[in-house]
Write a protein that binds this DNA or RNA. Structure first.
Lengths: 156, 156
DNA sequence: CTTCCTGCAAAAGTTTTGCATTAAC
DNA sequence: GTTAATGCAAAACTTTTGCAGGAAG
């Protein structure tokens, strides 16, 4: 079955994500330590962006300060992405090009966050519209962040 | 010239926004004090969402705690909206139905935020797609938040 | 006069930083 | 061996809360 949609990204492939992370950190002059490896594996397997407390609770045995420091390094290397919601704290997920471009369904009651993808044609039409809009406003090299806010099945 | 696009919202009309704010606060059992009036006027005239330090610096003479408390009250009454970016602090703007539905152009270098609107047809097609997507995931009553991230003319 | 709002001060929460120690290359 | 990563503790920062005094209805 080759029905899985083709993609230029590494999607759920943990091994490939690990390799990419290694290469990018090396390129950035950073070491790929076991803590960082564990962080990347945890985020890659999570299916939704994780807040720092959840990362600490996952048992990797890392300190709060190391978590923040390593996440910052991984973010700068383009391996992870910092996701903000209106919860008052940040969440982290693998970078766009590792996970594939996607959006978030956010429950406004419980804060639950789920990954979702837009269909390719809607996404590309949106991209074109946003590009035009941004150019008109003098903004360059535009990406976008689209979140859906609603009530999840458990809270509804 | 009446070329200004028709809209069901109050858009830039400060007087109408003030009246609406008054009505909503009364309906919520809250008073429309001079501080709150000043807050609403400030946000309505700003053209982009303001962080609390900027609100304090605007000279209204209000305290930090009063600013946060009043913004929370105004948010619950549906008069203002709390906007989160990845800056580590929140910004505030007049509520959607007062300002009109719009999005934000965010400069990833300097943090500058500008209001922009999508064309009506792109917006409505997007709405339909997102509704379908959310329903499929079991989410109800969905709104969306779309930000464009790029480099502004001053930073480019 | 009763209720809510305001200011001041302290607390709570997340994230950052300093410094000595340990691990990676 | 040299350089960078880690743990612990303290600090910085945004936001929230307690409480006494003051304004609004």
């Amino acid at each position: 079955m080759m029905a899985r949609r083709r993609s230029a990204t590494l999607e759920g492939d943990t091994r490939a994500i690990d390799d990419a992370a290694s290469a990018r950190l090396r390129a950035a002059g950073q070491r790929y330590t076991s803590q960082r490896r564990a962080l990347v594996a945890l985020l890659a397997g999570a299916g939704s962006p994780l807040p720092v407390p959840a990362i600490l609770a996952a048992g990797g045995g890392l300190t709060q300060s190391s978590a923040y420091r390593n996440l910052a390094v991984l973010e700068q290397a383009g391996v992870v992405r910092r996701v903000v919601t209106d919860e008052g704290f940040a969440r982290y997920e693998p970078g766009e090009d590792l996970m594939g471009h996607h959006h978030h369904l956010v429950c406004s009651k419980c804060g639950r966050v789920e990954d979702v993808a837009l269909s390719a044609d809607v996404e590309s039409q949106l991209d074109r519209s946003l590009d035009r809009l941004a150019r008109g406003a003098g903004f360059a090299s535009v990406s976008h962040r689209l979140d859906l806010i609603g009530i999840c099945r458990d809270c509804g």
